[in-house]
């Protein structure tokens, strides 16, 4: 059953990294509740282009909720008011007719705005480069029972690996901490035999890079976990703390 709504958008516009940004208000009428949030922005951009105005810059890629490219702080929530989905999977049926929707970029010292709603999330790539990998080639898929891994451990590693590195955790954190992201990346490898060998060195290197890039100190408020589109648990942060502290005490 198709329904359409009229909405008012308050969108953050910023010419470039150095410019001072401000909100601009746009009215959109007759938006089908079946459109996704990004499709709605596409419609708005089409409108802006026909009016010979600058379209709104925002990040997006797969639009299937798995690439981690889309962002947007919508009505006070990273990836919007819907739970456990990325912005591209958010639909206009989550909004009411006549609602004013505020759209902001991630605001964080480590994620500077490039333009409008686009931010530079290169900091997360740098943290991965610092140690978020296994140094050896582990070959093709091994025989299922060649290396026995208990099911609960395999499950937990898989849950951690669901992290798409979108940056919602750090964007939602009142401390600007990237601990949920780093802990998911450390956990996913530390739990499995191929990754375990470098676990201590990895935890140290990734935490050092995270601190160097100016992310904040985690105070366990759980905003990251609540806003994560992939429901990554803060129990991974406990594991990261364990790995890191054990490694430091051993040194």
């Amino acid at each position: 059953m198709e329904k359409s709504i009229n909405i008012t958008l308050k969108v953050w516009r910023q010419k470039d990294a150095k410019a001072k940004g401000a909100f601009e208000t746009y009215k959109l009428d007759g938006i089908s509740t079946d459109t996704s949030f990004l499709e709605m922005l596409d419609i708005l951009n089409e409108k802006l282009i026909t009016e010979r105005k600058e379209p709104i810059a925002f990040d997006h890629d797969c639009r299937e909720g798995i690439c981690g490219m889309c962002s947007l702080y919508i009505n006070g929530h990273p990836h919007g008011p819907d739970e456990d989905v990325t912005t591209c999977q958010l639909h206009m049926r989550k909004f009411k007719d006549g609602e004013t929707i505020t759209v902001e970029p991630w605001r964080l010292a480590a994620f500077p705005v490039i333009k409008d709603l686009m931010v530079n999330r290169n900091a997360y790539d740098q943290i991965i480069q610092a140690g978020g990998y296994v140094s050896i080639n582990t070959g093709g898929v091994p025989d299922a029972n060649a290396i026995a891994i208990p099911k609960p451990i395999a499950d937990e590693a898989m849950d951690a690996a669901a992290c798409i590195g979108c940056g919602a955790c750090a964007a939602a954190c009142k401390n600007g901490s990237a601990m949920l992201f780093v802990s998911a990346k450390v956990s996913q490898l530390a739990l499995l035999p191929q990754g375990k060998i470098e676990a201590a060195a990895r935890a140290k290197a990734m935490v050092a890079k995270m601190d160097e890039l100016g992310f904040g100190n985690c105070t366990n408020t759980r905003a990251c976990e609540a806003e994560c589109p992939k429901s990554i648990s803060i129990s991974h942060i406990a594991r990261l703390n364990r790995e890191f502290l054990c490694a430091k005490i051993k040194d």
Binding site: K10, G21, F23, Y73, N75, G76, H77, T102, E104, R107, L108, A109, A110, A172, K174, N175, G176, S177, G214, F215, G216, N217, T219, R222, A223, A226, E227
Partner: peptide
């Protein structure tokens, strides 16, 4: 340190989960 990490621009709208 956390205030510095948060950056200079505060969110216009922020909701507590």
């Amino acid at each position: 340190q956390n205030k510095k990490a948060r950056g200079n621009n505060a969110y216009a709208v922020s909701a507590k989960p």
